[in-house]
């Protein structure tokens, strides 16, 4: 996909929720949600698409912070949110279907949430 078609918009959590609702009314569909570990904590990307160009809403959060679920607005979000909860150990509230950490049964709790040097083994 051409680089200019991808827009990243940084925002705060309450602003993000109102924006997501607005996007739903405009007819966007949820493409994906993913989480990335950054130096100051984590960032979560919400990608929405209307036909082909996409919009990325991005929030920055700490490990302890609670993130409200958007599965009330886009029902399909529950899978992505459970994935983030299980792999990164983040606290997402009010999910449509909450697996309470049993979505992925990993041997290490929150394996993706740790920095690179902490993860031993696997080789």
């Amino acid at each position: 996909m051409a680089k200019e078609l991808i827009v990243f918009i940084d925002m705060e959590i309450p602003e993000m929720l109102t924006r997501v609702e607005a996007l739903k009314l405009e007819g966007y569909r949820l493409m994906q949600i993913h989480c990335t570990r950054v130096e100051s904590g984590y960032e979560i990307n919400y990608t929405f698409a209307l036909d082909l160009p996409s919009q990325n809403l991005r929030i920055h959060i700490d490990r302890e912070q609670e993130i409200p679920s958007i599965s009330g607005i886009f029902p399909a979000a529950f899978l992505y949110e459970n994935e983030i909860h299980d792999l990164f150990g983040l606290n997402i509230t009010d999910m449509l279907i909450d697996y309470h950490g049993r979505f992925y049964r990993t041997s290490v709790p929150a394996p993706f949430g740790q920095a690179k040097k902490d993860t031993g083994g696997g080789e």
Binding site: R102, R105, P111, F112, E123
Partner: peptide, 18 residues
């Protein structure tokens, strides 16, 4: 219907870091 998941999770996304 309620899906249950995680039988073939291999963590390939994490492997990209190594």
């Amino acid at each position: 219907a309620m899906p249950s998941w995680g039988f073939v999770h291999r963590g390939l996304e994490k492997l990209a870091e190594k």
